[in-house]
Amino acid sequence: MTSIGEQLSRDDLLAVVFESVREIMPTVEPARLRPELHLRDLGADSVDRVEIIVTVLDWLGLAEPLASFTDLSDIDAMVDLLYRRTRS
């Protein structure tokens, strides 16, 4: 299945993730958004993390199981996963 994210670069995907974080957690300072952080480091609890991931998948038109996002070490690893999935 092709998705809207197929043409997106890693930087584009990172921007989608950050935009989703800002949508779910509007009080997070933009300057705090860095790829080497985990969503947890930004103050996202488990419900926030679900909402952020669902928002990202929705934006990209991806039907990826949420379980795939369980053991990711940081936002960068999330972008790696999204990059692979948008091209598979």
Binding site: S46, V47, R49, V50, P65, L66, A67, F69, T70
Partner: peptide, 12 residues
């Protein structure tokens, strides 16, 4: 308990 895994699995 693995909080994220449990929540994600519930939703999937």
């Amino acid at each position: 308990a693995a909080a994220d895994r449990s929540l994600f699995t519930y939703l999937d």
